[in-house]
């Protein structure tokens, strides 16, 4: 066992990479939940994004097209959820579970021909001067485009929810859909758009796993990342900035346990790899005391009766 073999700079750098998939998925789910919809299908949308992105990237040779396809695939799957919950008025918990089960099956079917293939590599965005700063350079300024896209999205969603008119309307729909309806806002339309956005984000997160983080395709490869993303939204008290903080914590735990595995610590691999899930539970326990922040209409069915 050698702790000396763990390089803290590399650890922090890979933390940013490990955090990105759950960050993207959690940001999407944050918007969905702020609109008052609980979509438990994040895991299903992520895995669909993972295979759509992988398949398109392999066939076209372009990771960028892969990510576009992943966002499209995730959004398309979430459309099913939107139809079920917004038009057929089905229970959101059950529909979310259905989405996950369906997504896992569909991804396994789509991914049959792609096992054991390497995806085209994505170029790292080495920022010339900043990337050369010792310590900070490798940690902050030498990642692929998606890492920075995730960080930009945090700021964009934060600003959108806090300062823009669209954000205000979205929050109104999530806090009290009847009042929002009475004011003339199209509750169903806004929610459908939010769900589609959430699906696209989850798809991107999934594709990040299959194209960059792992990078290959295996069945069920998201391994609970979607559920961790859901937990992250609760952890963040439905605030964009804290989603980033949470994603870094989970990313850190994941990377640290992988490093400990590689360092040959005396704990068996199986026990170490439990840690992200156990930490999730622990964090949920700590954060659940304060439930006042949850959108008031979260998970409730809206039916406009005259």
């Amino acid at each position: 066992m050698e702790f000396g073999s763990i390089n803290p700079v590399l650890l922090l750098a890979s933390l940013m990479v490990a955090a990105t998939p759950i960050l993207l998925a959690a940001l999407g789910e944050l918007v969905v939940e702020r609109a008052g919809v609980l979509n438990l299908g994040v895991e299903g949308m992520m895995i669909i994004g993972a295979i759509c992105g992988f398949a398109v990237a392999v066939n076209t040779g372009s990771p960028v097209l892969g990510f576009v396809a992943a966002a499209g695939g995730g959004a398309l799957l979430s459309l099913l959820f939107a139809i079920l919950t917004q038009f057929a008025l089905a229970n959101q918990v059950a529909s979310g579970l259905a989405l996950t089960l369906f997504g896992l099956g569909l991804s396994a079917l789509l991914g049959q021909g792609y096992v054991g293939i390497k995806p085209p590599p994505i170029g790292k965005l080495d920022i010339p001067l900043l990337g050369d700063i010792p310590l900070l350079g490798p940690v902050l300024f030498s990642h692929d485009l998606m890492v920075y896209f995730g960080l930009t999205l945090v700021v964009a969603i934060w600003a959108m929810l806090k300062y823009s008119r669209a954000g205000l309307v979205l929050r109104a729909v999530g806090e009290n859909h009847d009042a929002a309806h009475a004011l003339g806002y199209k509750v169903v339309r806004i929610r459908v758009l939010a769900i589609l956005f959430g699906g696209a984000c989850a798809g991107l997160g999934g594709a990040y796993i299959s194209l960059i983080r792992v990078p290959q395709w295996t069945e069920g490869m998201t391994a609970g990342a979607g559920w961790i993303a859901l937990a992250l939204v609760v952890f963040a008290s439905w605030k964009a900035g804290r989603v980033l903080l949470g994603a870094w914590i989970f990313g850190g735990v994941t990377v640290l346990q992988l490093n400990l595995q590689a360092a040959g610590i005396a704990i068996p691999v199986e026990y170490l790899s439990m840690s992200p899930y156990l930490i999730t539970i622990l964090v949920l326990v700590i954060m659940s005391a304060d439930r006042s922040r949850a959108p008031a209409s979260l998970g409730r069915i809206f039916h406009a009766s005259q």
Binding site: L84, A90, A94
Partner: peptide, 26 residues
Amino acid sequence: LPAAAIQLFQGMLLFFLLAVDVLTNY
């Protein structure tokens, strides 16, 4: 027939069930 097709088939069942359930309450 691929094994995943059966998994998908089972998932579809829950989907359609939730969708047609609207007829019970509405």
